[in-house]
């Protein structure tokens, strides 16, 4: 190896390190800022009491319950539909078929639609046409629509990455297609599902525009899926932008949101690992 190529190599290594540090550094900077402002506001009672005085005092218990119910509805609908569609796209129809291309194109378009459009659609379709009104159900279903394109595309990529030998081997053993899918391909695709889920859940938890007109603004503890319930990001947005003196609790709630995201990310990779026995992301 000559001298100049060694030098170029070193420069490339150096640049990669710098970029990697910048990315992690940004994350830790945000985390540091949030923790510095918000950590002192977090306590057991903050997590277990309901908001008072428009959220300036009190906690976020009802907001957390609403958020998990919305997320539950969203994932309960999105995971079966998404994995099913991905399996259909990858296993049942030829890759270059017209149907497949149309489905993929519409999914990519859906993924690019701004969330406020989903919010307005959800408010009209789920809220008014189907009569769910402002409710956790409307919000969860709207989110499911938003999350689906990401989930389907990531899961499909997971299925495609499964080696052809798995399918051939399964077929050679005379296994039914469904069995091959469940026991060979699904575990192999699990990292794709995890990626899709983590991205989808992240998008769902961070969502305000799609939720403020569907699941709504009410901070009362929900007693059914047909109740309106404020999600955590809507709460942060309202405290930061609309309620003078709400910054302290906005920061504390944001810290909870970050912790929640970290928890869900680890839970998602743990669940796929144990449930589907697949290899997950490091």
């Amino acid at each position: 190896m000559n001298r100049s190529s060694v030098k170029a190599d070193r420069t490339a290594t150096f640049l990669c390190w710098i970029v990697a540090f910048a990315v992690t550094g940004t994350f830790f900077w945000i985390l540091w800022d949030l923790l510095g402002h918000g950590f002192k506001g977090i306590s057991w009672s903050f997590l277990t009491t309901q908001p008072r005085d428009a959220g300036r005092s009190g906690g976020i218990s009802s907001v957390l319950v609403s958020t998990s119910l919305i997320l539950g509805v969203c994932l309960g609908v999105a995971i079966p539909t998404g994995v099913g569609t991905a399996a259909f796209l990858s296993e049942w129809i030829p890759r270059k078929s017209r149907v497949g291309r149309w489905i993929r194109r519409s999914l990519d378009l859906l993924a690019a639609v701004p969330s406020i459009v989903f919010g307005l659609f959800g408010a009209v379709f789920f809220g008014e046409v189907l009569g769910f009104g402002f409710s956790i159900l409307s919000g969860g279903l709207t989110l499911a629509l938003m999350v689906l394109p990401i989930l389907i595309r990531a899961t499909e990529a997971g299925f495609r990455s499964a080696s052809e030998e798995l399918r051939l081997g399964g077929a050679a053993l005379g296994l039914r297609r469904a069995t091959i899918l469940r026991h060979l391909l699904l575990p192999a695709a699990s990292h794709g599902i995890v990626v899709g889920l983590v991205l989808g859940v992240g998008r769902a938890l961070a969502e305000t525009a799609a939720l403020i007109f569907t699941s709504g603004y009410v901070t009362r503890m929900p007693s059914s899926l047909l109740d309106s319930g404020r999600s955590i990001s809507v709460h942060i947005y309202d405290l930061a932008m609309n309620v003078p003196g709400g910054e302290a609790n906005a920061y504390a709630t944001a810290v909870v949101l970050i912790l929640l995201l970290i928890l869900i990310n680890s839970l998602a990779s743990w669940a796929t690992q144990t449930w589907l026995g697949g290899r997950s992301l490091p």
Binding site: F213, G216, V218, R220, S228, D238
Partner: peptide
């Protein structure tokens, strides 16, 4: 936020009433 706080107090007086405030 004001209407929501009024609604909460009203609900305390009338427990079987719900005031849902949206923006």
């Amino acid at each position: 936020p004001l209407a929501a706080e009024m609604g909460r107090r009203f609900e305390e007086v009338h427990p079987r009433v719900r005031i849902d405030v949206q923006t």
